Amino acid sequence: MDSVMLYGSRRKSVGLAYVLLAAFGLFGLHRLYLGRSLSGAGMAAITLLSIPLIWSGLGLLGFVATGTWALADALLIPSMTRETNAAALPALA
């Protein structure tokens, strides 16, 4: 029974992932929440590096890149959540 409670506490929510995407999509927090830390950190790094470069045009390119990435993630969040939750299931055995 403890393993079922552990799985319930580790289970990720599609709804919360969408809230994180809506609020902090360019920073990749939805990816960090879903266990994709490397790509989430990459999104955050691109966005943070783009802020001081916004007037040079490179910053705008960075925002377009992370914005497009975040829009694509809007379609991918349900499958990413399923994969993350399925990976937590072996912990039950």
Results as ranks from 00 to 15, higher is better:
68 T>V: 10
88 A>N: 06
71 L>M: 04
7 Y>L: 15
18 Y>T: 01
2 D>K: 02
48 L>G: 13
4 V>S: 12
35 G>R: 13
30 H>L: 07
50 S>E: 12
83 E>K: 06
55 W>T: 14
8 G>P: 08
57 G>I: 00
49 L>Y: 14
32 L>F: 09
68 T>C: 10
38 L>F: 13
82 R>M: 12
52 P>W: 04
38 L>G: 10
51 I>M: 09
40 G>S: 02
46 I>K: 14
13 S>G: 09
58 L>M: 14
86 A>P: 06
73 D>S: 06
86 A>Q: 14
32 L>I: 11
27 F>M: 05
41 A>L: 07
18 Y>C: 02
77 I>A: 00
25 G>H: 05
41 A>S: 11
12 K>Y: 03
19 V>P: 04
54 I>W: 11
24 F>K: 02
46 I>M: 12
31 R>K: 14
11 R>P: 03
7 Y>T: 04
57 G>C: 12
14 V>C: 15
92 L>T: 07
86 A>G: 12
85 N>T: 05
75 L>M: 08
32 L>M: 13
87 A>I: 00
65 A>H: 07
93 A>N: 11
25 G>T: 03
59 G>W: 03
49 L>F: 13
44 A>T: 08
20 L>I: 01
17 A>H: 01
76 L>Y: 03
68 T>A: 06
1 M>C: 12
60 L>D: 11
22 A>V: 05
39 S>K: 13
72 A>I: 13
55 W>I: 15
74 A>T: 10
70 A>H: 03
77 I>R: 02
21 L>S: 03
34 L>P: 01
13 S>N: 09
83 E>N: 13
2 D>A: 06
65 A>N: 06
15 G>F: 14
68 T>I: 13
39 S>Y: 07
53 L>G: 02
11 R>K: 08
86 A>R: 13
28 G>Q: 02
78 P>T: 05
21 L>Q: 03
3 S>D: 07
67 G>I: 09
14 V>P: 05
15 G>C: 06
62 G>E: 10
24 F>Y: 07
25 G>D: 04
